[in-house]
Design a binder for these strands. Structure first.
Lengths: 203, 203
DNA sequence: AATGAGGCATGACAAATGTCATGTCGGTTC
DNA sequence: GAACCGACATGACATTTGTCATGCCTCATT
């Protein structure tokens, strides 16, 4: 009885490579490949998949939301997150969203297949380097609103824009940005955005 | 006589996938794989490669500089650029640096192999979608200094930082940023940076 | 019930940023 | 050679941004 696997990744080349490499394993069968997160839960149900391998960064529905959707729609299906960048914050959020494993993309193919098997058996798989970083970097220090405002700022809008879209006074927006800068250690808004992104605090 | 190919890409999975896919072709032989741009020219010389396949975004030496280095060190070796994002500006700069081809990563494997062959024969290969975008978006409107300052700003530094590192007065820096914003159409520094990056004007 | 901690929200003030008018230099055009 | 154009460079001025003191509200603790 082979493991039925669904793969979602926006980069066609990576998706194809993953499918080809893992499909070679005798005990793994790739039943669906998706280019974004929106259809993942449906595909899992349709093909009664055992494991879903999801990229964190995807257009449409992001990987973490997709993971949550999969868990809701098919609780028996395990989720293994695969990511290009090892942002520590993603790890914790993915786990909270119900993922069973979290590995980075340049893991050797053998270990990827092994990770799929472990996850299928109900074990947890976490890249050790990332786990260590996660402990060091810890959670996001930003409050909900702070993160919200900083995310809006990351699109390059002015304070006035953000204030309007978030229904806040301009002063309040500045205050949140100021707090975000203090907490991230950045000296400018742009720096704060960069630091928060690098740590996976924005998504 | 098979085509001797060198592959450089920072993502191990992609690099492996490219090597595996292209190595399957009977007339292509992958003689070296690199994870960054610094050693590419040396590897090309050492293995007397016919074609170098380079990613644009790489740590260390970027793909475009690496392309130029390859052309200098081994003029008979053709360069094929492969990129994740189709930034129009990269295309032109890559061509000026001596590349013979430019394709995006989610091109089907067959066409990638075909692109390698065409390049090897001395033909030029350009992704048609990208070529069209390149004509629309055109060249970077930024002058040398404007680009330089905008690039410095993209790292999140303050005006004072940039002024010091570029040996310019603060007023001058502000002026360049202002010009860059006007030319990109961005209303803030951050927006200008984003637009310039998306168009491949910064690298 | 009182206390205190923390998130949310705001406005006044200081500091940084963005805009503009101006000037120099080197190359092109007439 | 004169006139012109564009890139480079600067300082003065208006606008925007970042900091701070303050107040309100909720929730957990005493």
């Amino acid at each position: 009885m082979s493991i039925r696997l669904v793969i979602a990744d926006d980069q066609a080349l990576v998706r194809g490579a993953l499918a080809a490499l893992l499909g070679l394993e005798p005990d793994i069968e790739v039943v669906a490949e998706l280019g974004d997160g929106t259809g993942v839960a449906a595909a899992v149900v349709e093909h009664s998949a055992d494991v879903a391998m999801l990229d964190v960064e995807m257009p449409g529905l992001d990987g973490i939301s997709a993971a949550a959707a999969v868990r809701r729609a098919a609780p028996q299906c395990r989720v293994l997150m695969v990511t290009t960048f090892g942002r520590p914050g993603y790890l914790k959020r993915a786990m909270q969203a119900g993922a069973s494993g979290f590995v980075v993309k340049d893991t050797p193919a053998r270990q990827l297949a092994e990770a799929v098997r472990r996850v299928h058996q109900g074990l947890r798989v976490v890249d050790p380097v990332l786990a260590a970083e996660s402990l060091t970097a810890g959670d996001s220090p930003l409050t909900e609103r702070e993160g919200e405002v900083l995310k809006a700022a990351s699109d390059g809008g002015t304070v006035a824009d953000i204030a309007k879209s978030a229904m806040l006074s301009e002063g309040t927006v500045r205050n949140y940005l100021s707090a975000a800068m203090a907490k991230t250690g950045g000296r400018t808004r742009a720096e704060a955005v960069r630091i928060a992104e690098d740590n996976g605090w924005l998504l």
